[in-house]
Amino acid sequence: MRRSREETNETIHTLLQIAQQHFTKRGYSAVVLEEVAQAAGMTRGAVYHHFRSKKGLFQHVLEAVQVIIGQHVEKEAMKSDDPWEQLHLGCRGFLEAAVEPHHRRIVLIDGPAVLGWETWRRLDEQNSMSHLREQLAMMQEQRLLKPMPLDALTHFLSGALNESALWIAESEDIAAAMRQSMDVLNAILEGIRT
């Protein structure tokens, strides 16, 4: 009897949730697929059937986490109708979501190390960076930003946010590091405002 698409999707969802817990708690290198499969009540073969490898499973987990972060960024930004406030709220939302304990190791530490910078950057571009670029493009159209190349600005701000997230995540006082990062970001954004 063939499994329904719904059952398959539920299996994949369960594996991703359990794998995320394992990757978050122990890090990529310490996770063994047999443990993930056992925790999901499945065989290692079932994991390989859906994801082909531990690295493939990790990439799917990273993609799922990046989608969650992107959704959080968008939700935070939409708390205001003002484009500048949307930009500030979205950037803060990214930093908050990226440094969450159940996100930071997967997104900021293991992601680039396991998948390589090229793959990690492509996934980042498809999620958080795409929201940032959309906001900046809209603001350029409304002449709220000084004229400058949109791609360069997007990559510059995205890089600054990613590096800030790493720094905040490693800080002893996360709240203070968040405030300091937002102060610097606000100063930079004021410099590009028309």
Rank of each mutant, 00 (worst) to 15 (best):
A187P: 01
I192W: 03
E7S: 15
L144K: 05
T8Y: 11
A160F: 07
H155E: 12
V107F: 05
N186V: 08
L157N: 03
D124T: 09
E74P: 07
L150H: 05
V65F: 02
E35R: 09
L89S: 08
G159L: 02
H72A: 14
D110G: 06
H88N: 10
E134H: 00
E7K: 15
V184P: 00
H22C: 05
M1Y: 13
F58I: 07
E34T: 12
G45W: 12
L145W: 05
L136K: 01
A113Q: 13
T119F: 01
N9D: 15
D151F: 10
G116I: 09
Q135S: 00
E6C: 11
M1L: 13
E141H: 10
P149W: 10
S4K: 14
L62Q: 04
W167K: 07
V36R: 03
L95Q: 04
Q135N: 00
E63F: 04
M182N: 03
A46E: 14
M42E: 14
P101I: 10
P83C: 09
A152R: 12
R121I: 09
Q86A: 11
R105F: 06
V107E: 04
R121A: 11
L123F: 01
G41L: 09
K146H: 10
S181N: 02
A39I: 04
M42S: 13
F94L: 11
K55E: 15
L166P: 00
Q17G: 09
L115K: 09
T154V: 06
A169Y: 01
A77N: 08
A97M: 07
S181D: 02
L144A: 05
H50G: 12
K75V: 13
Q17N: 12
M178C: 02
G27D: 02
A64C: 04
D124Q: 07
Q126R: 01
E172Y: 00
P101V: 10
Q59G: 03
Q140S: 11
A137Y: 02
G111T: 06
T43G: 15
D81L: 14
E76D: 12
N162S: 04
M78D: 14
E74N: 13
L89Q: 12
V61C: 06
I168Y: 01
H60S: 11
V99K: 05
E125G: 08
I109L: 12
S171W: 00
P149S: 12
S171M: 00
D81N: 12
V47F: 10
Q135R: 01
A40T: 09
E141R: 13
A152N: 11
G70W: 02
M78K: 14
R193T: 02
P147Y: 08
E10M: 12
V65C: 09
I12F: 09
R5K: 15
V73M: 15
S128R: 03
K55I: 11
L33C: 07
E76R: 14
S128W: 00
R179K: 06
T154Y: 07
A169N: 02
T194D: 07
P112R: 06
S29N: 03
T194Q: 08
Q126S: 01
R133F: 00
K75M: 15
M1S: 15
Q20P: 02
Q21F: 04
Q86Y: 07
A64V: 05
V184S: 10
L189H: 02
A187W: 06
K75Q: 15
